[in-house]
């Protein structure tokens, strides 16, 4: 297969379109021009760095370099996952639960993918291990982040409803069951949409990428099916862990709600 290479002209055009968006934001006074410029610059710098770094790592084929890269990615995701909730746990627990759930969900499905379906030789081959873990990590991170947001905001909003169940003799699991279910469901909605729409409304990103890069579309769709299944499973594991752990942290073994475990 022969990948279609982009020229500097193409990149200039992309930059021009971003400038257009900024101009539009100014004209319509949307107030997002600053965020746009910052996000776009971050994207460019991060992607160029990532591309160069991957080029370097792929060239070496060293297990340590690959593992170091993966650890760095997991650490960054563990930080990122806890940054956008409005209601938070005290910082240590917040990041421990967010990061722990994200890493567990990702690592389990990434290993399943690497050791069964994709089987690169050796298994840590950077060209496959790094992008695949990254893909799964991004998805699990979203799911965990949404889960925590839902659990934390629901419990602080519905405090009196949960306390009513507790006073009537429910265990903490019974009292918070509904919140946990709701949070996992919310976290999986984007993935469910993505799966249901796959191939009809949108061509999923990986498949698009592979087709653009010259792969046979049917082979690309097989890849997509396997990866999508891994993504759903990872999200499910991450979201379930995050929901249960967050709910557990907001209560104690005597079945009391512990709102004092929230950050002020």
């Amino acid at each position: 297969m022969t990948p279609t290479l982009l020229t500097s002209g193409d990149l200039l055009l992309a930059g021009g379109m971003l400038c257009g968006c900024v101009a539009l934001s100014l004209v319509l006074s949307l107030g997002i021009q600053k965020a746009l410029v910052i996000a776009a610059s971050r994207m460019v710098v991060q992607l160029v760095l990532a591309g160069s770094l991957l080029l370097l790592i792929f060239g070496r084929s060293s297990v340590w370099l690959t593992v170091a890269m993966l650890v760095f990615m997991l650490a960054a995701a563990s930080y990122e996952v806890g940054t956008r909730q409005l209601v938070r746990l005290t910082p240590g627990w917040h990041f421990a639960i967010g990061g722990g759930s994200t890493v567990t969900g990702t690592v389990i499905v990434a290993l399943i993918g690497l050791l069964t379906a994709l089987q690169p030789h050796p298994w840590y081959q950077a060209r496959i291990a790094i992008p695949m873990t990254g893909l799964l990590l991004g998805n699990v991170m979203n799911a965990v982040s949404l889960t925590m947001n839902t659990v934390l905001s629901t419990i602080s909003r519905e405090r009196s409803a949960i306390e009513a169940r507790l006073t009537l003799g429910a265990t903490r699991a019974e009292a918070m069951n509904f919140t946990i279910q709701q949070a996992i469901r919310t976290a999986l909605i984007p993935t469910l949409n993505q799966m249901a729409a796959a191939g009809i409304i949108t061509l999923p990103g990986i498949m698009t990428g592979q087709i653009l890069a010259g792969m046979n579309p049917l082979e690309a769709s097989k890849y997509q099916i396997v990866l999508m299944s891994l993504i759903v499973s990872g999200n499910m594991i991450g979201a379930t862990l995050a929901a249960i752990l967050t709910a557990a942290r907001l209560s104690d073994t005597r079945g009391r709600l512990r709102m004092d475990h929230l950050a002020r």
Partner: peptide, 20 residues
Amino acid sequence: MPAHLWRQQVLYLPAEPGWW
């Protein structure tokens, strides 16, 4: 005893009740 068994016997009713 487990807290929920205790609360099934000793019931607290707040001035403003909660509803689920």
